[in-house]
Design a protein around this nucleic acid. Structure first.
Lengths: 354, 354
DNA sequence: CTTGCAATTTTTATCGTTCAAATGAACACT
DNA sequence: AGTGTTCATTTGAACGATAAAAATTGCAAG
C-alpha cells in the first residue's frame, strides 16, 4: 500500500505562468499557437517551462479537447500465435508514436461477440479510433464502426460489399503470381496449389493469382486442393497432390504453415525440397528462415502497412494537415524471398526481391 | 477532414442526474460508493443510467483521481522478433483487463537511452505504472523507476545489486536441471552445454543449473562453450563441442535459437537428433514444434507470469484490496516439453511436464 | 415536542487544460 | 485629438468527473 510520501506535484500551466509572470493562457499559447505570442514573452515562458520541466497533462488536455490521442488495437485473448500480427503491432506502435499518438491494447473475442469492448472504449472516450487486423469475410466490425462514424483503418480489406472504412492490404494474387513466375523460370511445368477452403477472402485472392499466372504461362489446368491452416492438414494436402497420377513438381502454398507441412511430407518420402519438388509459402514467418526449413516465401511489408494504416486513421481524425486526400484503400505487393526450398542447387541461396 | 456532423453528445453524470431528479454527486455515489445511497434512489438512478446508456468518462475521472488506470509497456522499435515477449504482452493485456486496467504501448530504445520515453509518460500522467520485460544485467530502468517511486514490475529479475522493484522470473537453473535429468534417464553420460557468454544473468543461471545437475549425477566435468543467440553461432558452437576428443552425446542449449543451430549441424553431419545426439533447447518457440525440428525444450509459463506481474504492479498502486502482502519476487518453474530431438525412438513422442 | 445522531443528499471546490470573449496597448489615419 | 485596427495578453467558463464539507432528512430517545 505504502502511499508514496506526498510527491511534490508536477508543474502545471498555472505554476509555469506564475514563474514567468504571465497568465495561464499565454503559456498555453506558447505551446499550441506560438505565433500569437511576442518573441520576448515566448522566450521568457520557454525558459520557465524548461526550468520547471513542465509537460502538459495529457488527461486534462484530452478532456478539454475531446481527443485522447490514442488508438485502440485488439489482440486475441490467448495470443493465437499469429506472429505476423505481432510484428504489425510493433509497426503501428512506432508509426503512431511518430505522430504523437499511442496504441492502447484491449482484448475482445472475434466477431460480433467482441463489439461491446469497442463500444466501451468509445463510450469512455478512451480512444479516438481503432486499428483493425485479422479481418475476415463478413467481419461485423467495419460496418458497426462506420455506422457510428468512428475513425478506423484495417490491415486487410473488408471482403464484403459494400466496403466500409479505410484499409491497406497485401496483394495476395500478385504474390502467388510472382511465385509461379519464379517456379516457371526454374523449369517447372506442373505447379500445384494448396489453399484454404473457399470463402476466405485472403485465400481466394492468393488462389486466383496462382490460377491466372499458370494460365498466362499456358500451362493448362493445374492441380489444387484445400486445407486448414495447420501443419497436419498441410501435410495431408501435400500427400493428396503428390499421389495424383501426374503429380506436380512444385507447390505454391497459401501460407507458410501449410508449406512447412508440405516440407514434412517431402522429408517423409525422401524427396529433396527444391530439387525434387519445389515449395513456396506465404508470410515469411520467422521459422521460414531456419535451416532444415529454409522456405521460399512471400514477405509482407508490415512496416509500410503499419505506417499506412496509422496514416489512414489519422486522416479521419482531421489531425494531420499534410494529406487528407490520400486514397482510402491501398494494396501493397509482397516480395518473394527465395530460399533453398524452390531452387535446384542449394548453394545458390540468394534472397531476391522482384 | 469531414468533421463528423455534430454527434449528439454522450450522457454525462449531469444528464443522468437530471433524468433521475437527483444531484450529480448522488449518481457518482451510486457508481463508486453504493452503500451510501438509499436503495430506492439507487434503483431510480440505475434505471436512468441504463436508460441513457451512461458510462463514466475515463478522462474526467482520471483527471480528478490522478490515476489513469493504464500500464505502460515498452516494445522494441523494430519488433526484434522476440516471439516470447509478444506472448507475454498478450498475457498482461488480458490480466490487466480483468482488473480494469489497460496496457499502453510505447517504443523506446533499450538502456538509458530509452528512459526519456518513460519520463514523458509519467510527466504527462498517461500511465500509473510500468511493466518491464527484456531486462538485462545493469538495466538502468529498475533503479531509475524505484528512485522516483514509480510502481512497476518486471518479467525477469534485476540481476544487479541492490535489487529494485518487484519481479517474476523463470527458474532457468531448474529448467536446465530438468533437462539434464531427462537426458541422464535416457542413458546419456556426456552432456554438453551451449550457453551465452558470461555476464548475462539469464544465461549464467541456466548454465549453473546444467553444471550442478551434472555434478549431482556424478558425471564429472562436462564440456561447454558459448555463442551469441543466433543460428550461425549456435551451429559453430555445436561443431566445437562435437569435434572434441570425447564429444558429448547430448547438448543442453541456453535457447531454442541456438539449439536449432545445433540441429543444423547434426543434419550436416548425418547425425540423427535424439538417436545419435540429443538436443534440448529453452523457450519453446513456435518453431520448436515444427516437423523437421521437433525440439525438446523448456516452456515458460507466460500466462502465469503475465498475471503475476500485473498483480505486482497493482499491489503498488494500492488499488487491490485482496493481497497487498504478496511476495515481491517470484521464480516460476518452466516445464520440459519432450519431443523427438532428445529421445532415441522417434515414435515415442509424448509431451511430459514434470 | 424537542434534541441528538446517523444516514442520506446536495453544495462547493478542484483536477489541468483549452475555447471564446474581453481587455489593453500600440499605431496609423483622417 | 479622435477613431478604428491590429496585435498581445488576460479573464471567465467549460470539459466531466470526485473529494470534502455542508445541509437536509429520518428516526429513536429523552
Amino acid at each position: 500500500m505504502s502511499q508514496p510520501p506526498e510527491q511534490p506535484r508536477a508543474a502545471t500551466l498555472e505554476s509555469v505562468a506564475e514563474a514567468a509572470a504571465v497568465s495561464r493562457q499565454t503559456v498555453s499559447n506558447v505551446l499550441n499557437a506560438p505565433h500569437r505570442v511576442r518573441a520576448a514573452t515566448r522566450e521568457k515562458v520557454e525558459a520557465a517551462i524548461r526550468e520547471l520541466g513542465y509537460q502538459p497533462n495529457r488527461l486534462a488536455r484530452s478532456l478539454r479537447t475531446r481527443a485522447s490521442r490514442m488508438l485502440g488495437y485488439c489482440v486475441q485473448p490467448h495470443g493465437d500465435g499469429n506472429v505476423l500480427l505481432d510484428r504489425f503491432l510493433h509497426a503501428i506502435t512506432e508509426a503512431a508514436a511518430e505522430r504523437g499518438y499511442h496504441v492502447l491494447l484491449f482484448s475482445a473475442r472475434p466477431g460480433a461477440e467482441g463489439l461491446p469492448a469497442y463500444a466501451d472504449l468509445l463510450a469512455q472516450r478512451t480512444v479516438d479510433g481503432f486499428v483493425l487486423s485479422d479481418t475476415f469475410m463478413d467481419d461485423p466490425r467495419q460496418e458497426w464502426l462506420a455506422e457510428r462514424d468512428v475513425p478506423f483503418a484495417a490491415f486487410g480489406r473488408s471482403w464484403s460489399e459494400p466496403e466500409h472504412g479505410s484499409w491497406i492490404d497485401v496483394d495476395g494474387a500478385a504474390g502467388t503470381r510472382d511465385a509461379v513466375d519464379h517456379l516457371y523460370e526454374q523449369g517447372h511445368r506442373r505447379i500445384g496449389f494448396v489453399g484454404w477452403g473457399p470463402g476466405s477472402g485472403v485465400g481466394d485472392d492468393r488462389r486466383a493469382g496462382w490460377e491466372r499466372a499458370c494460365a498466362a504461362h499456358g500451362l493448362g489446368p493445374q492441380p489444387s486442393t484445400a486445407a486448414d491452416n495447420d501443419l497436419r492438414e498441410g501435410a495431408a494436402a501435400a500427400r493428396r497432390l503428390l499421389d495424383l497420377p501426374d503429380p506436380p513438381t512444385a507447390l505454391v502454398c497459401v501460407s507458410d504453415m501449410i508449406a512447412i507441412g508440405c516440407l514434412g511430407v517431402l522429408a517423409e518420402r525422401g524427396l529433396r525440397p527444391g530439387r525434387d519438388v519445389a515449395v513456396v509459402g506465404f508470410d515469411d514467418l520467422p521459422a521460414a528462415a531456419l535451416p532444415g526449413i529454409d522456405l521460399t516465401t512471400l514477405s509482407q511489408p508490415l512496416d509500410e502497412i503499419g505506417r499506412g494504416v496509422v496514416d489512414l486513421v489519422l486522416d479521419q481524425l482531421g489531425d494531420s494537415a499534410p494529406a487528407p486526400d490520400r486514397p482510402r484503400h491501398r494494396v501493397l505487393r509482397p516480395s518473394l524471398v527465395v530460399r533453398s526450398s524452390s531452387i535446384p542447387f542449394p548453394r545458390a541461396q540468394e534472397a531476391r526481391t522482384p
